[in-house]
Nucleic acid binder design. Structure first.
Lengths: 108, 108
DNA sequence: CCAATCAATAACCAAACGGTTATGGTTTCA
DNA sequence: TGAAACCATAACCGTTTGGTTATTGATTGG
C-alpha cells in the first residue's frame, strides 16, 4: 500500500487524543468505534472525526461488520515519519544507516 | 540535556513551515533569524514565533551574537519521537530492535 | 551620536481545530 | 416489523493557530 503524504501523518499524530487512539489500537488490536469512544472519554462523533484524520494518514483501516465498524492500526503507515527522521535526525540517522547497511550485507 | 515532552515535539513538527526550518538548519547548519526569514518566505515575526515553538520542543537552540541570534538544530531532541515510534511502530520496531541488538554485540 | 539593522513582542485577524448536540442511514433482534 | 444500536455527517461554537503590521529594545557602523 502506498503511504500517505508525510504532512498527513505528522498532522494526524500531533493531537494527543489521536495518538492515544492509535496506541490503543496497536496495543489491544482491532476495536469498534463504540469501544474507542468509551476508551477516549469523548463523544462518538468526536471519535469518528479523529478516525477520519487517522484514515487520511492511512494510520488506521476500517472494516465494516454489519452495523459496526472495526478499526485496526496500520503501523507501517508510519514509514513517512521514519523516513523523515532518517533524513533529518542526524544523530540517530548515522546509527541507523550503518545498521541498515550491515543488515543488507548479512541478509541478502 | 533532558528532552522536551513528546507532545511538544509532535506539535512542533506538525507544521510544514516549522519542519522546513528545522530541515534547513540541519542541512545548512547554524543560521540567523534574518537568513531563515529569507528562506521561509514569510515575515520575520512569523519566523520568530515558529522558532519559539521549536525552542519549546528543544529542537533548536539560539546563540546570541550581538544584535543577531543564530539558531542551530538539535537533532537529538527528536528522541521522544523516536522512542514513541519504538513503542508503537510495530513493523519498524522489529527491524530497529534487531539492528540495535546487532550493534551492541559488535561494538561493546 | 545617530541612523539603520536585527530580533522579539504586542495587537490583531481569518481560518482551522477539537469538541458538542442533532440528524439520518443501516443493521440487528425481540 | 419496529424499536434500538451503531456510526457517519451536518451544523454549530469557542479556542488555538499561523499569519499579518506596528512597536520596542538592543547593537552596530558610518
Amino acid at each position: 500500500m502506498k503511504p500517505a503524504r508525510p504532512d498527513h501523518v505528522f498532522r494526524a499524530l500531533a493531537d494527543p487524543t489521536r495518538r492515544a487512539i492509535f496506541e490503543e489500537l496497536t496495543r489491544q488490536g482491532e476495536q469498534t468505534v463504540h469501544a474507542l469512544t468509551h476508551y477516549a472519554g469523548i463523544s462518538q462523533p468526536a471519535v469518528s472525526k479523529h478516525l477520519t484524520v487517522l484514515k487520511r494518514a492511512k494510520l488506521v483501516h476500517p472494516r465494516r461488520l454489519g452495523r459496526e465498524t472495526h478499526y485496526r492500526a496500520q503501523p507501517d503507515a508510519l514509514a513517512p515519519m521514519v523516513d523523515w527522521l532518517n533524513l533529518y535526525g542526524a544523530f540517530w540517522r548515522d546509527r541507523f544507516d550503518r545498521l541498515e547497511a550491515l543488515l543488507e550485507r548479512m541478509e541478502p
